[in-house]
Design a protein around this nucleic acid. Structure first.
Lengths: 124, 124
DNA sequence: CTGTATCCTTGGCGATACTG
DNA sequence: CAGTATCGCCAAGGATACAG
């Protein structure tokens, strides 16, 4: 018995999708994965190389979760060395504007924090 | 001395602000906090009540971090029972479109996942 | 009212080694 | 190539108690 979840009180309708959406792209690497995938479909190793530091395990976990969420489509090509192609599903396409908005605001945040020299602001 | 951070290879210019921005609104509750604050300034207890399940500690930590990032402004009112008002700073205002995009996409995700009955999709 | 201080559990993420 | 298995660290959060 480990029901440590409190009684979920209904949240306002705006924040429910907010949390749900964040549960999808909340991971440290998830936005990057979606970002790269939004450009074009990629294979496992391509993603790894593009993202740079991510370990195979984490990438697998994130991809599996994204696949389970219906955001990413995984297709195994019947080639001799196994090839797997990942691409955004129709659902995943919906995430692109959000990611784009985050990227955009990230740029502007950098400018502002540089201009005003905000203490503890964004590290460059 | 625990420099376990690997040598950070330069990531493409688009994904750096992505990660930086995510480091701001990456917490489980951070988007909600910003969302509520984007409507109007709120006091500590108001935020707690609005968000619902968040514990005082977590809310404090998140607010302190947001304050340190220059996203949220904290003002102590000199009233007899101490009152503290939180509001988005100019920097925080910049985050609103991103949050709005996430909220928006959250709504559409719900529709799609409901329509197509995506396995493991967004829980309603 | 607005937090702080502890303690604890969970899960993310990294590293490494190994497999089909 | 595309993962899986295992281990371990650490931060995020929750619960609870206490403080200014």
């Amino acid at each position: 018995m480990v029901v440590r979840r409190k009684n979920k009180v209904a949240l306002p309708p705006e924040v429910c999708p907010l949390r749900q959406c964040m549960s999808i792209l909340g991971g440290a690497w998830t936005p990057n994965i979606i970002w790269y995938l939004s450009g074009r479909p990629r294979r496992f190793s391509e993603l790894r190389a593009d993202i740079g530091e991510i370990s195979a395990k984490v990438l697998t976990v994130r991809l599996r979760r994204l696949e389970a969420s219906g955001v990413v489509h995984r297709e195994v090509m019947p080639t001799s060395p196994p090839t797997v192609e990942y691409r955004l599903s129709e659902l995943g396409q919906e995430l692109k504007p959000a990611i784009a908005a985050i990227v955009d605001v990230g740029h502007r945040l950098k400018k502002i924090s540089a201009k005003k020299n905000v203490p503890g602001g964004l590290r460059t």
